[in-house]
Amino acid sequence: MARPIAKDHEAKRLHILREAAHVFAKEGIARASMAQVALACGISKANIYHYYGSKDALLFDILDSYLKALRDRLEGLELDGLPPDAQLLQFVSATLLAYDGMDAEHKIQTEGIAVLGQDEQQVLKGYQRDMVRQLSGILAACAPALADDRARLHATTMSVFGMLNWFYMWNGDADRAARLAYAEVVSELVIGHRPTKI
């Protein structure tokens, strides 16, 4: 007979993900151990293995949960009918707000994706590509000339993400107002005028 899933299974899983992300971010993924994760979670190492068969499985679930939620949040923005500059401001604002409190998950992305297997990498990179594609479409609508120059459009798209990541790295404790103010700065730098606020 299959063992029933405990009522608090999902809450414990999310707790493990959050604590493990902090351990991986602090120690580095290669140096972090499942014993350290268990200690941070306040549970036994055996209990960690009840949820995850390996460190890679745990790492994948951290990044899969984080990137999928971020992708879904951005794809769920109600942008239809908005002028392109307002769409850009909404996208940039939502990204900066989504980064709030997710420093550890964000920090381990680059190292973490690279150490996983190809199948897992493809899933995670797929979320990233979805977000790049969405922003590229918004930028092409803001500056139609970009649509005819794919290399320039890609460079512009990645530059916007670069500005957002700079803010995350140096202003992690910024409040909502500061994040929204910086979203306006980024949007204005990209489109050359103050974006339409909705």
Rank of each mutant, 00 (worst) to 15 (best):
G172L: 03
V190G: 08
G81P: 05
I43G: 15
E184I: 15
F167A: 01
G101F: 15
S44A: 04
E75S: 13
V115H: 04
A178N: 12
A140N: 01
D119H: 07
D148E: 10
R18W: 05
V123A: 06
G137Y: 00
Y66A: 02
P144F: 15
D61N: 05
A147T: 03
R133W: 09
F91Y: 13
L17Y: 11
G126N: 15
S44K: 02
A6G: 07
I108W: 03
C142W: 06
A46R: 10
D148C: 07
H154W: 06
G76Y: 01
Q36R: 10
Y66D: 12
A86N: 07
I138L: 03
D175V: 11
W166P: 11
E10N: 14
K12P: 05
A2I: 15
G137R: 00
A35V: 01
Q90K: 06
S136I: 02
Q90I: 09
E78A: 15
Q36K: 08
G126C: 02
P84S: 01
K12W: 08
H50F: 09
Y99L: 05
D100C: 03
R194E: 15
D100T: 11
E120W: 12
M131K: 06
M34F: 08
R133T: 12
D149W: 02
T156Y: 03
A21T: 14
G162Y: 07
A151L: 12
A57Y: 08
I191S: 02
E75V: 13
A104L: 00
A145K: 03
D8G: 05
M34Y: 10
M158D: 15
I191L: 04
K68N: 14
R31N: 10
L77F: 07
D72H: 11
Y99T: 15
D130G: 15
M102I: 12
M158W: 08
L77H: 08
F167D: 10
S187N: 07
S93L: 09
G162S: 13
F24V: 10
D149H: 07
G81E: 09
L189Y: 00
L135P: 05
W166M: 14
A181P: 04
D85G: 13
L153S: 01
R71F: 10
